[in-house]
């Protein structure tokens, strides 16, 4: 099978002796949306810079659509569009001028290019700004413009390095919607982030990177299964009497109780759905005035921390 993105044992040691990547092997199938997740300094940008030929690996290989980026950069770069870190902007130019230049570099013909520029500016909601100076754009608009530039030539693969960096909640939602759209169009999306929540909504799978090594690779639904909560939030109709509070502690299967302002409580249990059900039945049998009963949202972040190595700090 030919992968959209494939690396074998990528290693990068910088001139100062720091090893940012230590044997990273990735195989990203075509048409997938894959999150590349890791804390600050994990090596995400370094990987992406190697994939886009900005830097050379110390060892290992990287292929885009089966084309080696080191030996055939021109062919490889035709297949991919990329947003890397926070690029500088041609502040004195307009989006149209900038995109026209890059379109010509990709050898798009005049008519097709004009049409495409219109299309993608509409997609990133910059249609009204096509002839305004980029220097006057907000952070979000600049980010969207670079995303537009990355898909200008209709690449099979798009690589986005922290695409929502610096965006407000609405901007984040817009970018998420864009990524879904790319996926519908059959593109492969490789998306780096340091927030699991950010990628979990759009990705098919997630690769966890920590200190230059891939520590885990999982499909999103598998991650969901591991996110079972071990805490239940229970709210009562009225504050519990002292006696009721004591009785709550003795409900079978409840491992621990934390009372919150007497009107609600957090119950610890083993996390199994069956146990959760039994506890609820016990509470009702014992006449606890339960108003609602919800497993606590374990954050994806907890999972994230559990995947990343413990000996950090």
């Amino acid at each position: 099978m030919q992968y959209a993105i494939e690396t074998e044992n990528l290693t990068k040691t910088f001139r100062n002796g720091f090893t940012a990547l230590d044997g990273v092997s990735l195989s990203i199938p075509k048409g997938h949306v894959v999150g590349y997740l890791g804390p600050n300094g994990a090596g995400k940008t370094t990987t992406i810079k190697i994939l886009t030929t900005l830097i050379r690996p110390t060892s290992g290989t990287a292929r885009i659509s089966g084309i080696d980026v080191m030996t055939s950069p021109r062919e490889a770069l035709h297949k991919v569009g990329a947003l890397i870190e926070v690029p500088g902007m041609y502040e004195y130019l307009t989006p149209r001028e900038m995109l026209t230049y890059f379109g010509r570099v990709y050898r798009m013909d005049k008519a097709g290019l004009e049409h495409r520029i219109k299309e993608i500016l509409e997609l990133v909601k910059l249609s009204d700004w096509d002839d305004k100076k980029i220097g006057s754009f907000s952070t979000g608009m600049q980010r969207r413009l670079v995303i537009a530039k990355s898909i200008l030539h209709g690449p099979e693969i798009v690589v986005l390095d922290e695409p929502v960096l610096g965006l407000d909640p609405k901007g984040i939602r817009d970018v998420r919607e864009l990524i879904r759209q790319f996926q519908r169009e059959g593109m492969t999306v490789f998306l780096s982030s340091h927030l699991l929540a950010e990628v979990s909504e759009v990705c098919d799978s997630v690769i966890f990177l920590d200190r230059g090594k891939v520590v885990s690779t999982d499909r999103i639904e598998n991650i969901g299964n591991q996110l079972q909560s071990r805490t239940i939030n229970v709210r009562f109709l009225r504050p519990l009497a002292q006696e009721e509070a004591t009785r709550l502690m003795s409900v079978p299967l409840v491992e621990d109780v934390e009372l919150i302002d007497n009107g609600s409580a957090r119950l610890r249990f083993d996390g199994r759905p069956e146990t959760s059900h039994s506890i609820l039945r016990e509470l009702l049998l014992r006449d606890f005035p339960v108003v609602y009963y919800t497993p606590e949202d374990v954050g994806l972040e907890d999972y994230y921390v559990s995947v990343m190595s413990d000996d950090r700090r």
């Binding site: 900005l54 991919v80 690029p87 500088g88």
Partner: peptide, 14 residues
């Protein structure tokens, strides 16, 4: 210095 290279370098040209 201005990091416009992040736009212009990853394109199919030398």
């Amino acid at each position: 210095e201005k990091k416009t290279a992040l736009l212009s370098f990853p394109t199919p040209q030398r």
